[in-house]
Design a protein around this nucleic acid. Structure first.
Lengths: 346, 346
DNA sequence: CTATTTTTTATAATAGTTTTCATAAGAATT
DNA sequence: AATTCTTATGAAAACTATTATAAAAAATAG
């Protein structure tokens, strides 16, 4: 039975009667080492079961080849796809990915940012929590030239890379689509708007579209949920459908909320989309599965993860303190499915 | 502008005219350090913006406080919940979580296992890929006493911790439930069964339940998909419903597959559950949202993650080479919803 | 066969923390 | 007053890989 104690380059050096420096260089094909030596060293490494200690290398070189990902949760489809995109991209370049979930708690987020810094991650990708207003806990990364990318949920004023979609435009597009289908009274369900986040942008787009097309902008048509759960959304949408002056369309800021609205409409015997057209947001897996299929706004999660990781990697490769921290806008599209298609375009 | 170069315990030691050892101890409330000194050190650390370098600590102590998680993908609801459970539990004990996705590729899995080992993770939690038969790439962890837990998809014969559900029993329960609802001809949809995985166990349970209750076990009622996608499952279930001798019940080995079956039944104008009762597996989010609600088998993902992490943590704390590597069975339940409830129990 | 250049290897410093062992100062015991 | 026991702190080694610099060996030129 193999016993503890890792094989180190010292062991290799001993065995081969070479210096550790030679071993180290040989293992990474350094040009000043003869091919013969390289071959010899590698063979012995294999034989003795040498495994590089990335900790030691990281300590010495002050780099860990690790990207930290700090997000509210991993269980939302959008976020798990985001992670997937990050992981695939990072992995291709030999980087590891550390995940932390803030669960939208400000305190957790602060503590995790500290923890990631302390782990000396090579870069950090973050989607901030609902309640995060103060972002000074990210300053340490900037001060120490550790690449930082905010993705999707980004702080208002923090000069660093951002990978986002245009939520205002998306909200506008979604609403406009409903209008084009002939909706005259369009409701909106959103969540946590008191925290001034991206949902508010979508709502702005919604309102502006209504104004543009001379449709009523009414308080009673706008619902603001405390949390995005199916049941809460179900109650809210049921209430909307019981208004004296019932809406004939709905733009929901998320697919879960849209799905619940479809459910309550069906229970009330309304036809979708004829009596009540619905469009959601995110293109979550459920949107394809519910009946009728849910129209939605695409939200390129994996792509956003990929882009974020690429920015980190590029930024590590070409460090440049004074570089302009560009904002990357990714495209969203109106994905028309059954739940909103009143008009069959020829 | 703050400039590079981290504050180290040397800097603190210098400033306070103390030894680095004292600093190190003070920072972790070592009992031999006076309260006065501890206070002084902590205050200065705060003041100078000291952040511990976990790399260095890890190198010294030969531990990284990191748990590696190697799974096929993060985007399946079951697996993202699993990760969530792991992350929360690990985090509570100050452990980081590194995620890697094998995408069911054997080569990737091998390479990632190597990479995790090289990162000196303190423990590893793994759900093996579909095609993984040879598991020798995990031997290195065992040989070096690095705690290893297999979860959900586990290898047949590898003596280490396992956190699983009883897939056979679950398959049996699901089928029995349909039988109790009066189904006489029960179909089954599964996937990738040629790889001898947990799906086969469920199928065994299905078959044994049929036999037990003297119902027909027929080839034409069992479908084996290549991949678990909604569309492929839709085609397969449609075909099932077009059989001369149509089934009146279905046990699908996953909720996506069950959802597609519901969809095709609805398209054919069948009543669910009266004409066609359906039960899925996993209790994915969609199961609550589709209409009718999907009966399913609960699969305690977050709990399994938590248990796995706890085993790792315990195993780190009390290392014991010769310990019995127990198998933890978690409970599954038949969650009866609309899609299968033919009989309203009094 | 020197002198010079090129190739290869060795030495030692470095990264930042933890920990073992040692020591000094003061308190308690005889 | 001498000894032992506590308590608090310090010095130095260890963890492993990298790298700058020095040195040695080999190859080439004159």
């Amino acid at each position: 039975m193999e016993e503890n104690k890792d094989v180190t380059i010292y062991d290799l050096a001993n065995k081969l009667k070479l210096a550790t420096s030679t071993i180290s260089r040989a293992l990474k094909d350094h040009p000043t080492i003869s091919t013969k030596t390289i071959k010899k060293v590698k063979k012995m490494a294999e034989e003795m079961g040498y495994v590089p200690n990335t900790l030691a290398a990281g300590l010495r070189g002050n780099k860990t080849n690790t990207i930290g990902v700090l997000i509210p949760t991993v269980t939302q489809p959008f976020l798990s796809s985001l992670i997937s995109g990050i992981e695939i991209t990072a992995r291709k370049s030999g980087y590891n990915v550390i995940i932390m979930q803030s669960h939208d708690s400000y305190e957790e987020e602060v503590s995790m940012a500290k923890s990631l810094y302390s782990s000396r991650v090579s870069g950090i990708i973050c989607s901030i929590g609902m309640k995060t207003v103060d972002t000074s806990h990210f300053q340490q990364f900037v001060n120490n030239n550790i690449p930082l990318v905010f993705v999707d949920r980004v702080p208002k004023d923090f000069n660093t890379f951002r990978v986002i979609i245009d939520n205002y435009a998306a909200g506008y597009k979604a609403t406009k689509h409903l209008i084009e289908q002939g909706c005259k009274r369009i409701a909106h369900i959103t969540a946590g708007s008191e925290f001034g986040n991206l949902y508010n942008e979508r709502k702005r787009g919604y309102i502006d579209a209504l104004i543009k097309y001379n449709l009523p902008v009414e308080k009673e048509l706008m619902v603001d949920l405390k949390t995005v759960t199916y049941n809460e959304a179900l109650k809210a949408s049921t209430k909307l459908l019981e208004l004296k002056n019932r809406p004939d369309g709905l733009f929901a800021s998320g697919d879960i909320m849209a799905a619940s609205a479809i459910q309550s409409a069906k229970r009330k015997g309304l036809r979708i989309p004829e009596d009540f057209a619905v469009i959601g947001f995110n293109n979550d897996p459920i949107s394809e599965i519910i009946d009728p299929n849910l129209s939605t706004i695409t939200h390129p999660a994996a792509k956003m993860g990929q882009m974020s990781a690429e920015i980190i990697l590029k930024s590590i490769k070409f460090p440049n303190k004074d570089e302009v921290k560009e904002i990357t806008f990714l495209n969203t599209e109106v994905l028309v499915r059954e739940s909103s298609k009143k008009i069959t375009s020829s």
